[in-house]
Design a protein around this nucleic acid. Structure first.
Ligand SMILES: [Zn+2]
Ligand SMILES: [Zn+2]
Ligand SMILES: [Zn+2]
Ligand SMILES: [Zn+2]
Lengths: 136, 136
DNA sequence: CTTGAAGCTCTAGTGGCTAGAGGAATTATA
DNA sequence: TATAATTCCTCTAGCCACTAGAGCTTCAAG
């Protein structure tokens, strides 16, 4: 049996976040001590680690809800898991694309060699998207 | 003189967002019609376009506050503008790096060719970071 | 048995908007 | 000019995934 603090240390998930996940229904309400403090089992630890790792990989709470559900049913086909992951991958790739365009514009404007605002490439570009090389 | 709707159409910033920027102090409170509706000048349009473009380039409201301030003082040196932009560029590059690591892991796990959850690479990986190739 | 750490619940704040209620003003048409 | 359609107003609340803090109770070590 772990206290919430021990669980927190073992998983790297902060205490308020653990309570938040409980409120969101991602983890079951654990048993309580006589004094009403949460007491977790090894199963609770496993489940929270799963959640933690899924969050680290960028899945949303809703995604994780589905993935946890699947993980409890080993006999089911894994196509649902794949489609959640594939969708997420697409989202990540979309974000990368956008950020790379930003990177390119930012690199360009920070090359400014003016010395006052009146002719600064940063300020000029912000005032006029026409100076940009990409859409965004 | 533009109404808020006309300003919105010309800048592509939604009406509630314009009011939000006003509340945040990014744009001055405009004059009002007799019936208390906002009336903007060309200056207001210019300023809002600057904000819009800055947001499109990913600057935060706080960044933009500084950049707008600078843009009102053309005689100042532009080093402050550069440091805001350079900091932002670093942030963007950091995010790209993280997302690329995610992309790599997600690509790997979506290659799973199992057909049920019991042996699915997606689920197995979520349960065990040891299976990952990178940190995150 | 005392003390200090750790736990409890509840509320509110973060960023950058977005949606909706319920009403007033403006503009277009008849 | 009367009415109808559109736009605008303020105010509140919601989004996501937490995070911080107040004020209190319980636990574990010595
Ligand atoms: Zn410059
Ligand atoms: Zn641009
Ligand atoms: Zn699979
Ligand atoms: Zn991992």
């Amino acid at each position: 049996m772990f206290s919430i603090g021990q669980l927190s240390k073992r998983t790297g998930v902060k205490i308020p976040t653990i309570r938040y996940y409980e409120q969101m229904g991602l983890i079951d309400e654990p048993e309580r001590s006589e004094g009403n403090q949460r007491r977790y089992t090894k199963d609770g630890l496993t489940r929270l680690s799963f959640i933690r790792h899924s969050r680290d990989l960028g899945f949303t709470i809703e995604d994780i809800r589905g993935l946890l559900d699947l993980s409890q049913h080993p006999e089911k086909p894994c196509s649902d898991a794949h489609s959640i992951a594939a969708q997420h991958l697409l989202g990540v790739q979309g974000r990368i694309t956008k950020l790379r365009r930003l990177e390119r514009e930012l690199k360009r404007i920070t090359k400014c060699d003016a010395d006052n605002v009146a002719t600064c490439a940063v300020i000029e570009t912000l005032a006029d998207h026409g100076l940009c090389e990409t859409e965004h």
